[in-house]
Amino acid sequence: MTPALEIKDLQKIYKGDFHALKGISLSVEQGDFFALLGPNGAGKSTTIGVITSLVNKTSGTVKVFGHDIDKALETAKSFIGLVPQEFNFNQFESLTRILVNQAGYYGVERNIAHKRAEKYLKQLDLWEKRDTPARMLSGGMKRRLMIARALMHEPKVLILDEPTAGVDIELRRSMWEFLRELNAEGITIILTTHYLEEAEMLCRNIAIIDNGQIVENTSMKQLLATLDIETFILDLPANSIQATLNDFSYRQIDDHTLEVDVKKTQGLNSVFAQLSEQGVQVLSMRNKSNRLEELFVRLVANKEPAA
């Protein structure tokens, strides 16, 4: 099957000789939920800018559903829906007008566009605000408006650049649910995010960019499988005795918190057994940090490009 997105040896050198992309190659299959991660300034937004023609590439090829942006730019663009990082709609226009005009740019007749605007505004809980100027919306509403706008021409691939930045947890989770539904309907989704938990929960495949290069490009499962140590925080009763754990690396943070590094081969039973023997009760336990976050930090710190 033709990939939804295929990038080969993409380079971007900005004025002043800043080498933002140093030969990025990646492929996103149709129907995928794909995460593009990287620290600030790594090249995520530049990559998205090139795909959507907001940034002129220096060299390399980009194909959207097999259509090369150098040869069939307008066809390639018609497949893409973009939710950019910054708010970029007319702040003085009403929500309905923003959506209907956007659909018009893709050749959607106004009567059809009005029906779609109603559908997406209702789905994204913005219907009550349909005649309100966009500047009057809250930050979360503005983010949802940009998602609705990106869907107006019913794209086959939806690219979201930090869609949940600054959004509260409840709203973030409802947006995740909405994106999952879109993906289940067959829309390919490419997501950049700073919330690694978000990528881990939603995405099946992942590429990590650092310093303009891909340092990892694999499935989420495979990536997480490479993690051989997890750190657990054990909550103990106040004034617990100093516990000792053989064969484990551990740290007593204070009189009621113990931090233990557990290798995949070791398991947790031995930790509990040793603590029980010493009469130390474990009240609760949690992961120290998100698993993907640990991998991300490690990969970005290594700065080794993927083969």
Partner: peptide
């Protein structure tokens, strides 16, 4: 104004010649 508010991008990302 469309440049300044960046809503010119609405047209630039669309297949508008």
């Amino acid at each position: 104004s469309a440049k300044w508010q960046r809503n010119v991008e609405e047209m630039l990302v669309a297949p508008v010649p």
